[in-house]
Design a protein around this nucleic acid. Structure first.
Lengths: 242, 242
DNA sequence: CTAAAATTGTGTAATAGTTACACATTTGTA
DNA sequence: TACAAATGTGTAACTATTACACAATTTTAG
């Protein structure tokens, strides 16, 4: 039995045909929230095989960047956004997942506030789609989307990340509608409020909603004390640290 | 702004120097449990830069396999194991993570029953190391190990997977010691027992331990009713399904 | 054979968290 | 001015978690 770790023997034999040199890509599942629905940003595939089917936003990794940088680049190029919440979810590597050849892709999901960025999207073929009405995406993107949605559902149970999907100021109704949209459930209003106040995630802005055709609710913002929790978790899993 | 999804333009331009063709590897964090400690299986790096440092078990992806197959192959080759519990955790892609060149690696963790497989390891440079006493592994393997350990800790809170680390028959003491080793905590014995019986994860074998120098405890096995939960979750996130 | 060491097996009370549930109030609109 | 729509609020029942102690079983050492 071989006693060596093959990676140790790697250099400089990068031409060895026993080892795959693959194209690597990132695919971003960009979530947004509008009309009380969870949406995902998609683009029309212009690959012939996937004519008229929708696709996630992705791109091939470049020689000088890592996966996270590539994801940020895709987001920046497609939506104009920087400083977005981004999380790596899973890497997909089926031999036949890309009709053009062997491409391994790492899926990230991103949470953005749709309202902030409507303008950037108005002149190209990008569209926000309700996640619940989707199927038959190009490539293996149905599966990637489902995997990311499932991870998002897990993450919001423990971590204060949904705020990335909302404007700076929001009402409890909006916050609850967002949870309900992501988890596809209905929740009790009184218990929802109680829980959030207990968790101390909200700061009362002492302001009221405007532009609603009913009694306006109070506005809140995210309590950034809890950013440190996120940062701590992020540093932990970030590739640049430790 | 480009309106096309670059992946759509991929074929047949696989030689485009704007895009990285990278070596891809898997690294397996193989966990075991012995002497009341959580262990990880490591190999001595024989790369000169990492002389005398320990490394995770990994290998480069081959042209005809996906990441999961490669992980199973590594496990089979190194430990003789098939049918092991394996879970993808994270993909690491720093530009400088491998001294031999650009290698992107996907980390998996695996749970094995050490006792079943002692023989396979006796004649090579593989060793089980306590996870708590580790640092200064080769490559970025400290970080990979920490990331996998953290994921394991999350997973055991919700899913009945620790049984993969135990023999078929085990006592509640062993089970509790395992949880304590993984989570690095102490737990209350009565509450621990109550919780597991309530969750219905255990089947009483109506047998007693032997070879202990004290009052023997009852033996249990994992209630495989709950395999379906694992299967369901696995199908969901598996790349071959959906 | 007996006593000591080690560990098993067992229940309850206090606390904390979750769920179910209804009505008066505020605002905009017709 | 009254109707529609949504806000804001508290309590009781239930469930889950925690803290905690003692008698019984087995092995080992004397």
């Amino acid at each position: 039995m071989a006693t060596s770790h093959r990676l140790d023997m790697l250099s400089p034999s990068a031409q060895n045909p026993n080892f795959l040199k693959a194209l690597v890509s990132v695919d971003c599942v960009i979530f947004g929230f509008a009309d009380n629905e969870l949406k995902v940003l998609l683009i029309k595939s212009d690959l012939e095989v996937y004519k008229n089917r929708w696709s996630l936003l992705g791109d091939l990794l470049r020689p000088n960047e890592d996966l996270e940088s590539a994801s940020y680049r895709v987001l920046k190029e497609r939506t104009g956004l920087s400083d977005v919440y981004l999380e790596q979810v899973y890497t997909f590597s089926s031999l036949d997942r890309h009709p053009g050849g062997r491409v391994i892709t790492t899926a990230y999901y991103s949470l953005v506030n749709i309202k902030d960025h409507q303008l950037k999207l108005s002149h190209n073929e990008l569209h926000w789609h309700p996640v619940n009405e989707l199927s038959n995406l190009a490539f293996d993107h149905d599966k990637i989307l489902q995997t990311c949605l499932e991870r998002l559902r897990e993450q919001i149970q423990e971590h204060p990340i949904v705020f990335n999907l909302l404007p700076e100021k929001f009402s409890l109704r909006e916050l609850q509608a967002l949870y309900e949209a992501i988890l596809n459930t209905k929740m009790d209003r009184r218990n929802f409020r109680k829980k959030f106040f207990l968790m101390d995630w909200l700061i009362d802005l002492e302001e009221l909603e405007t532009d609603v055709s009913h009694r306006p609710g109070k506005l809140y913002r995210f309590n950034s004390i809890h950013l440190k929790d996120l940062k701590a978790a992020e540093i932990f899993s970030s590739e640049e640290e430790l």
